[in-house]
Computed example of a mutant assay.
Amino acid sequence: MTAFKVVIPARYASTRLPGKPLLDIAGKPMIAHVCERALEADAEQVVVATDDSRIFDTVSALGIQTVMTDPNHQSGTERIAEVAEKLGWRDGDIVVNLQGDEPLIPPACIRDAAEALARQKQAGIATLAAKIEDADEIFNPNAVKVVLDQHGYALYFSRAPIPWHRASFPDCRDTAGLNMPYLRHIGLYAYTVGFLKRYCGWSPSPLESVEALEQLRILWHGEKVLVQIVDRIPEAGVDTEEDLRRVAARLARA
């Protein structure tokens, strides 16, 4: 079994749901559920990275390792790189970035990303995608699409419908019979520590600014992103009060 670590970036500030990691879901703070998913994936080490003492204290009381990080980081990736440096992880160690608002993430997805990365040597980062079943999702800018090469490495990520099927769109949204499935990107990443160090030295790219997709920085700087295809898109995380109620109902039934 592939050895890997999980880091869960968790910030207190949230425009729509302030204090989101600490919100109660089925009798536990949301961050506790996320940590449980990481442990169920058989991660050898689970660390919460935060810049807030309230989150630090709550997670520490759960018996989960917690690291205070710089509040000025621009992304969770930078926060994870700081954790790796502080804890002295080696360049070849595999780290999965698990968002702190994903209490329903299947543990198998966490393992899939880590194991996909471990099976090859060309990319320092792996992520997930699943086939789009609903044609309307192809045109939804909140659903990020990805196109792969023949070896499973990303050619491009976009909020636009890619690839553009010239004969079918935009007059018809029926994807039946198309010989190339449309893939939705799932924002779960596994990295090597060595990749994280390189990433933090790169400047933002024009592509990521236009699409508002941080992963395009990697392609812009000439590195590969391995994409592991999984059976289905995981249930959405928590961004709104409605999401909170949905997830709470789901976990109360579990």
Rank of each mutant, 00 (worst) to 15 (best):
A160G: 03
K224D: 09
D239S: 14
R111L: 01
K28S: 14
R11I: 12
A129D: 06
G201F: 02
A118H: 13
H185M: 05
D134G: 02
G177V: 07
Y182R: 09
A167T: 13
Y182L: 09
V67R: 01
A248P: 01
E235M: 13
E137C: 01
D112Y: 03
A114W: 10
P170R: 06
K197P: 00
E36R: 15
P71I: 05
L188D: 01
V247G: 05
G152W: 07
D93H: 01
E82P: 05
E102V: 00
T240Q: 11
N179T: 04
P21M: 12
L39D: 00
L98E: 10
E211Q: 15
P181K: 12
T50A: 06
T15W: 07
Y12A: 13
E137A: 14
E102Y: 03
L213I: 15
I125N: 00
D171L: 12
D52L: 04
M180R: 08
L251F: 06
K145I: 00
L188K: 09
S168Q: 10
I132K: 08
R250V: 10
F195T: 03
I8G: 03
V227M: 05
T127L: 04
D136P: 00
S60A: 14
N142M: 12
S205T: 06
H151F: 09
V230K: 08
A49F: 08
E44A: 09
N97I: 00
P141E: 09
D171W: 06
L196A: 04
A114Y: 10
V144L: 10
V95N: 07
R119M: 06
D101Y: 07
W202M: 13
I64R: 11
I105Y: 06
A108I: 01
W220Q: 08
R245T: 11
N72A: 12
K145P: 00
Q45E: 15
A130M: 07
I94K: 00
S209V: 07
A108V: 06
I186Q: 02
V230I: 15
E82R: 07
A13K: 13
R250C: 13
R217G: 05
L178R: 08
R111F: 03
A143T: 15
A190Q: 04
R246H: 08
R245M: 11
L251D: 03
F195V: 06
W220E: 14
S158Q: 05
V6P: 01
D91R: 14
E44H: 08
V83I: 10
P9K: 09
L23K: 14
P18E: 00
H221A: 04
Q122Y: 01
H165D: 12
E36P: 01
Y12P: 00
H221S: 04
G177K: 09
L22A: 13
V95G: 08
D174H: 10
R173G: 14
G237R: 06
A236L: 12
P18N: 03
V47C: 09
P106V: 07
V48I: 06
H185E: 00
L148A: 04
D112I: 00
I132W: 03
G187F: 02
C35A: 15
A212N: 15
P71C: 09
V47A: 03
I233W: 05
K197V: 02
R173T: 11
A3R: 14
A26Q: 07
P234N: 13
H33R: 12
I162D: 03
D91L: 11
D149S: 01
E82S: 11
A118I: 02
R232H: 12
L244K: 10
F169A: 13
A130W: 05
Y191A: 03
L117N: 02
R198C: 05
D174C: 13
